[in-house]
Amino acid sequence: MATTRHVKVLIIGSGPAGYTAAVYAARAMLEPVLIQGLQPGGQLTITTDVENWPGDATVLGPDLMVRMEAHAKEMGTEIVSDYVTSVDLSKRPFTAETDSGTTYTADALILATGAQAKWLGLPSEEKFKGFGVSACATCDGFFYRGAEVVVAGGGNTAVEEALFLTKFASKVTLIHRRDELRAEKILQNRLFANPKVEILWDHQIEDVIGAAEPLGVEGVRARNVKTGEITEVRCTGFFVAIGHAPASELVKDQLETHNGGYVVVKPGSTETSIPGVFAAGDLTDHVYRQAVTSAGMGCMAALDAQRFLEEDLAQPDTTVAAIA
């Protein structure tokens, strides 16, 4: 049965930004409700070793997110396993419709929906998704024990995926369209030192090759961006690791965005183009995109929301009573 609930602060998203916002909002006695979304915990739940979270030399991504969720609950946040299908930001209180049928109205809204994996956009890539094509090595790497796999990309994501896959695969070929990687130097050094890794420079994936019966990947076709020469690389697993795009579908037609869909916030704050709506984490950050910066922005969003609500309550009531 459909129900409607009103809350002071509604948080959409459950990565480092969402959970940190929840901790701070709960400490401010704002009684926040957090809706986790389709991927509770966000991108860190599909990451293995996290080595740049302050206070933990190494921590597993999923473990870190379990701790953050527990912290938010301990502070008093109500965490809901649901996902938001639409929002209406045209008037206050703001409205969020969910898949379960519950409608939430909120005095303030914190958006922390994060980012999603980018795809190459090839028809063959779409054909073999789930049948040898993946964007998550930590999800699917186990299935390629002793096999040969290919990773496409050249940033941190691609190098981390390739290194993780060496735990299972007999050979990992990293295909990058440039002649140097964009990943952090420490990750590059690990990659170059790993005997299971081979790099195909200056190549771009043109097609995924596979069988129809049963459906499965058998290799990829890559084109040399300088000479045009085509190379086929045999593999049974193909991992796309070319970065992420902001998950701004809910609000892209209601809030100001830039740089391919990232929500615009005012400098030095998490305020969006609509008063009372705040955005934090990878949804807004096209520069740093780190767990620690997302958490910091979650803190900012909660404090901004608290300040907004306090100022809102302080406004004099200008309603004129009707004369009988």
Rank of each mutant, 00 (worst) to 15 (best):
D202Y: 14
E218S: 15
H244N: 09
T157D: 01
T227W: 02
A152I: 15
E161I: 01
A193F: 13
G216P: 08
V233G: 01
A212L: 07
L181P: 07
K266Q: 15
V263D: 02
W201M: 06
V220D: 01
E160W: 07
S170V: 08
L215F: 09
K167A: 03
V251K: 03
I205C: 01
I242R: 08
T157C: 02
K167F: 05
R178Q: 10
V220M: 06
R223E: 13
A241K: 01
N259F: 14
P195R: 07
G219N: 13
V233Y: 04
K266F: 14
D202C: 13
F168N: 02
A247R: 10
I230P: 05
S248N: 15
F238H: 03
E180Q: 12
E249D: 15
V264M: 08
G210S: 09
L255K: 05
N224E: 08
P246K: 02
E256C: 12
V172D: 00
W201T: 03
K171I: 09
N194G: 11
L163M: 08
N189F: 14
A245Q: 13
D207K: 12
V159W: 00
H203D: 06
V151N: 01
A152P: 05
Q254L: 08
G260C: 08
W201A: 03
T227P: 06
N259M: 12
L200E: 12
K167I: 01
R223Y: 13
V265D: 08
